[in-house]
Structures are given as structure tokens and as C-alpha cells.
């Protein structure tokens, strides 16, 4: 099948990335924020895969694997923190986390 030009891949990754960003900004619920973070990281992974496809070496894909492991680690720690937050505040709304200011 005719190869898809890599620019389209990059544009797709960019769109995905921006969605992730908007997700982080608009969401009040911390869990959804973590999900949008995942989306952003996967978008970068996609860009890497598109890159490696274009140049034909495996670097991009290895990078994608790295990104996956990293995202997993972050989410793990994030969820741990969310549990502790819920136990203390009985809510997952991030506006609770605003004691420190000024």
C-alpha cells in the first residue's frame, strides 16, 4: 500500500499532543489529568515511531518503548499519591491542593 507521507504522521501526533495538553488544563479531576498526561506521552511515542519509519532505523521504536515504561512508572506513583489524597480529602478535585501560595 502506498506509504503514508511522514508529515501526516507528525501532524496526527501534534494533534494528539494538543488534545492531551487541553485535557490537562481543563479537567478538575486528578485522574483525568493523569489520563491526558498519558495521551501526551503516547503522542510523542507516535511521533518517534513515525520518525523511525521515515529513516528506517529502530531508534524511534526503542524510544517509544522507553516512553511507555516511563509513563507507566509515573502513573504508578501518581495513583499512589491520589490514593493518599483521597484518604485525606475524600475528593479528587485538584482545587483542594492550594494551601501553599504567596
Amino acid at each position: 500500500m502506498p506509504s503514508i507521507p511522514y508529515e501526516h504522521g507528525l501532524i496526527l501526533a501534534a494533534i494528539l499532543f494538543v488534545c492531551g495538553l487541553i485535557g490537562v488544563l481543563t479537567r478538575r479531576n486528578i485522574v483525568f489529568i493523569l489520563m491526558s498526561l498519558e495521551i501526551m506521552l503516547n503522542a510523542c511515542g507516535l511521533a518517534f515511531v513515525v520518525g523511525s519509519a521515515r529513516w528506517g532505523h529502530a531508534d524511534g521504536q526503542i524510544m517509544f518503548l522507553m516512553i511507555l515504561t516511563l509513563a507507566a512508572a509515573e502513573v504508578a506513583v501518581g495513583l499512589g499519591l491520589i490514593i493518599q489524597m483521597y484518604r485525606r480529602f475524600h475528593t479528587v478535585d485538584i482545587s483542594v491542593l492550594s494551601e501553599m501560595k504567596g
Binding site: 495538553l21 490537562v24 485538584i94 482545587s95 491542593l97 492550594s98 501560595k101 504567596g102
Partner: peptide, 17 residues
């Protein structure tokens, strides 16, 4: 300037982007 330190996570993310 100190007013910019509102403490809200969303505000920090907005500043970042």
C-alpha cells in the same frame, strides 16, 4: 508578582503552556 503564586495547579499548568 507574588500574586502570580496563587497555589492553584491549573494556574501553574496554564503558565507553563
Amino acid at each position: 508578582i507574588v500574586l502570580t503564586q496563587t497555589g492553584y495547579l491549573r494556574w501553574y499548568a496554564i503558565s507553563l503552556i
